[in-house]
Structures are given as C-alpha cells and as structure tokens.
Amino acid sequence: MKNLVLFDNVRLGPYTLRNRIVLPPLTRSRSSQPGNIPNDLMADYYRQRTGAGLMVTEGTQIEPRGQGYAWTPGIHSPEQVEGWRRVIDAVHAEGGIIFLQLWHVGRVSHTSLQPGGAAPVAPSAIPADNVKVFIETGPGQGALALPSPPRALTTAEVKELVQLYAQAARNALDAGFDGVEIHSANGYLVNQFISAHTNRRDDEYGGSLQNRLRFLREVTQAVADVVGKDRMGVRFAPLFATTEEDRVYLGLVEEDPHKTYIEAVKVLEEVGIAYLSLAEADWENAPELPEDFRADVRKAFSGKILYAGKYTPERGVRVVEAGWGDLIAFGRPFIANPDLPERIAHSWPFNPVDPATMYGGTDKGYTDYPAYQD
C-alpha cells in the first residue's frame, strides 16, 4: 500500500476518522423540484463515497435567498430536513461521518432564483462580475447568466442572518448530521463581508478589517453554540495572485491576503472550532499557497487543517509530512471514483470525470461511475 500517511486514523472533535481522505463540498445540482429537496439519488451518491474519513456535503442554502444556482439543496424547510435524513441514514449505515456545508451566496445570485424575483442581498450594493450563475430556463433545463445587481443589507438584516445560520445548524442536527461547515470562501456571503472589494459598509460590519470580520465571528459563534465547537469547521479560499489573470476571481483577491486570512484564522481559533478548510485555486497554473502562509496558519490555529484543490495523493502526503495539514480533500477525483480511497491505497488508475454531467441531470455521471474491477 502506497501513501500510507493518508490512511492514518485522525481524531476530529468527538470522532475518529478512518483516514485523512475527505470528500469536499461539490455542487452537483440534483435536488428534487419543487423545493430543492434532497432525494434517494443523492443518498446513493453519498453512500457510495463513505470510504472517505470525512464527508462534507455540497453547499446547502440556509434560506431561500441563499440560493445562487439551480437545483441546489436547502436546509430551511421540513421537507429538506426529511430529505437529508434519508441521505444521512444511508451514510451512517456504511459507517460514514458526514458534515453539512452551510451556504449563502449573497450577491452571487439571480432574480429568478430569489423569492418574489427580488434582488440578491449583499453587504453592499456592488454587482458581482467575472462570474456566472446557473439558472433554470425550463423543466430540467438551465443556462448560465450574469448575477443580478444586489441590494445592501440593513444592520438589522445582518443580525437576522446570523440567526438564520444558527437555525440552519439546528435543522442540520435535526436531520442527523455529525457536524457542519460554514462556507466562507469563493466570493459568497461571508467572504463578501470579509473582503474590502465587496464590503463598503459604514456600520459595525464594515470599514476596518476587524469590523469586516465581525460577521464571520458572529456566525461562527452562533453556529458553535448550536452544534458544539468541536463538531464544526469553516472553509476559506485565500488566493495569492501572481498575474493579473489570477486576480480575476470573483473580484475578491485581497491586497494583503496573508494578513487578512491570518486574522480570520485567529477568529476561528478564539471560537475554538474543530477544523479549518483551505480551498486552493484549482485551475491550470494557479498559484499555490505560499509556504510561509501555510506555516503561519499552523501557528495560529490549533485545530485540524484541511487542504483542497488540485491535490494528488503524493502532494497530499507532502503537505501532511511537512506538518502544514492533517486532512486532504479530493474533489473531481471523488466525483468519478466512488471507491477513491481504495484506488489511492492500491495505486489503481482513476476513472476520468465527465464534465458534461457535473451539474444537474440524472444518475448519469453521478451514481453510475464504476468501482475498480481488478
């Protein structure tokens, strides 16, 4: 067996993970309509991938305004909670550990996805550019579209959103999830509060970096109060741009990403959560996180650190052996290889992923990828 370090048992809060391999959040847009309800097809998908030490669901909107793409599941209605319960039962029957990713897209949405056709909500009324959302154009049909211009949240609405995150966490526990992860990456709502590009507020949630981190702090603490700090994680996506092309990433490349994200990590350390997930850019020739940043994250955070991006097993081993990380997530490889841990353990070849079936559709390109046949 190669890559032995990836198969160590790891303690994460109250859980002992069977290995360091993680199924990360992967939007697949297969929920049942109307209502964005998790279904039996999704239960089969997650059940197939329970060889992972930890599974984190696709981004799941905490409220109707949190949706930015067609057919993504929610966690705010009784029907959605019941749908997720079927998914979790299938995962737990195989001994899997599964966390729910709490998601609100903020300004990265379209009026056709918003209740009553309203404008998306955001820290400030600054439109999202350099990104497109996927909207429904007919039954089972969709197309890419530019996000609609957002409106700025009032201070009272920001505080209400903190409680909506807490309620979504309660719903996750009611469904049976083992824990939750807050999506604070990739230009979505929590990330929009952190970034000076998207947060031009003049109240307690804007201005200085510490004020821009206030929403992150309040949401993280509110969720920790519900699920327990040892059963939750937060995902960031710090980008260290090296070219102008790299800077075009939802408009959220910070002037000083090192300082911004180390201060954000300190917020998580103060709350005392179980893990931090760092999603690295995954396009060709994307910049890697600098070694001094990885080292400073390790110094600032005492919980487990999870890395995701264009990871190979060998690169994952290097990160663990260097002491920078504890868990390694594999995204696209896990889509096409439900038995990915076994393939890594035995150096078996990987199935290629079919990009045409990534978002929406049926079981094709979702639950029909074969396990390895020796």
Rank of each mutant, 00 (worst) to 15 (best):
D8E: 15
N9K: 15
R11C: 14
G13S: 06
Y15G: 00
L17H: 07
R18D: 04
N19K: 10
N19W: 10
R20I: 13
I21F: 00
I21Y: 02
V22H: 07
L23N: 01
L23Y: 09
P24D: 07
P25V: 07
T27F: 12
T27N: 13
T27C: 09
R30N: 02
Q33N: 02
P34E: 02
G35R: 03
G35N: 02
G35F: 05
N36D: 14
I37M: 09
P38W: 07
N39K: 06
N39S: 08
L41Q: 09
A43W: 00
A43V: 08
D44I: 10
Y45G: 07
Y45I: 14
Q48N: 10
T50S: 14
G51R: 13
G51C: 09
A52N: 14
A52H: 13
A52T: 09
M55H: 05
T57C: 05
E58D: 11
E58R: 15
G59V: 07
G59M: 13
T60L: 09
Q61T: 04
P64E: 12
P64K: 04
R65C: 06
R65G: 02
Q67K: 11
G68C: 01
Y69A: 05
A70C: 04
W71K: 03
T72L: 06
P73T: 02
P73I: 04
H76D: 14
S77Y: 00
P78I: 01
P78T: 00
E82K: 08
G83H: 04
R86C: 02
R86F: 09
I88A: 13
D89C: 05
A90Y: 08
V91M: 11
V91E: 07
V91T: 09
H92F: 15
H92W: 13
A93E: 14
G95F: 13
G96T: 05
I97R: 05
